[in-house]
């Protein structure tokens, strides 16, 4: 939208610019507060002792900070184990999803072959698929195969449900590479396979990395399958542990500890976001917007 005021009067021009500028910063500021405030409130809550939590109205920041919540989170429950489970499951799911997805994305972006449309329709169908529609047969199969409470029971569904994300993001990245690359490789005597492994893969490392972040976050956050296929406390992943987080030997809800646990499990995500915000935004918008 036009941001300049096209009036002839210079001083009015500047004043209007000033007011618009102020309103923009006000709006942007409010938006940033809208996004961050609830999480900052949890950070503040995580540093409150039970007594400091139960005040009316609530204290914005309680002094002294009650660091013990961060220690107690790991006491009397396998919370560290749960975090490790999530790291392993999300790590493997990401790795395998990228391997499987990058093959398919390369084919879809750069090669002509029969059945291309069918594959695209399948990917689209998976992206729209409600997970709840398949938990019953999956649960029965996993029980029969003895996979309940194993990480494989999560890794398989996560690879599948991240396929649309991986394939779409990588296809967009692969398409951006100039076609001449493979032509040149062919001229130099490469087979299509070699063109893929020796020329394309190294060049798409940034795209693959972006995609890895997105898949990791998806797998880290997934709840429905994790809740269904994991039913003992030491196999839980983070979302399940967080849902079932309760006091140890105590029936009141330990809000301070829940908040501390929330901060602990959100930290990896915040670090990813801070370090790779530009890539994440590029990856998220790559599929949705065709420039």
């Amino acid at each position: 939208m036009g941001t300049t005021y096209s009036g002839r009067d210079g001083s009015r021009h500047i004043r209007k610019e000033g007011i618009t500028g102020f309103l923009i910063y006000l709006g942007v500021g409010l938006f940033v507060i809208f996004c961050l405030a609830p999480f900052l409130w949890i950070v503040s809550t995580s540093l409150k002792a039970p007594g400091q939590l139960h005040t009316k109205p609530p204290q914005i920041i309680s002094w002294p900070p009650f660091w013990r919540n961060y220690v107690d989170v790991f006491r009397g429950r396998p919370f560290a184990q749960n975090i490790w489970n999530s790291v392993v499951v999300a790590g493997w799911a990401t790795f395998l999803s990228l391997v499987v997805g990058s093959f398919a994305a390369y084919a879809l972006a750069r090669l002509k072959f029969k059945g291309r449309d069918l594959i695209l329709s399948m990917v689209l169908a998976v992206s729209m698929f409600p997970g709840i529609a398949i938990v019953s047969p999956l649960y029965l199969s996993f029980s029969r195969l003895g996979l309940v409470n194993t990480k494989l029971a999560l890794i398989f569904p996560y690879i599948t449900f991240s396929m649309p994300l991986t394939i779409w993001t990588l296809t967009a990245f692969f398409r951006e590479l100039p076609m001449e690359l493979e032509e040149a490789a062919k001229v130099d005597g490469c087979t299509p396979v070699q063109a893929f492994t020796k020329v394309i893969i190294p060049l798409t490392a940034p795209g693959v990395f972006t995609c890895a972040i997105l898949v990791f976050i998806f797998a880290w956050n997934e709840f429905l399958f994790a809740r269904t296929f994991m039913n003992n406390a030491s196999s839980y992943t983070v979302p399940v542990a967080m849902q079932l987080f309760e006091g140890v030997g105590d029936y009141t809800i330990p809000w301070g500890q829940i908040a501390a646990a929330s901060v602990v499990v959100t930290l990896p995500l915040i670090i990813l976001v801070l370090a790779f915000q530009k890539r994440i935004v590029a990856g998220l918008t790559a599929g949705a917007v065709k420039g």
């Binding site: 499987v100 084919a107 090669l111 998976v126 529609a133 398949i134 569904p157 299509p192």
Partner: peptide
């Protein structure tokens, strides 16, 4: 080596298998 069309089909096979095994057969 493989032709372009063959390579294409080989490369999408793992993705198709995973999607069929976890989504299309289970539904």
């Amino acid at each position: 080596g493989l032709s372009e069309s063959q390579l294409g089909r080989v490369l999408v096979t793992p993705a198709v298998i995973v999607m069929c095994a976890v989504v299309f057969f289970p539904i």
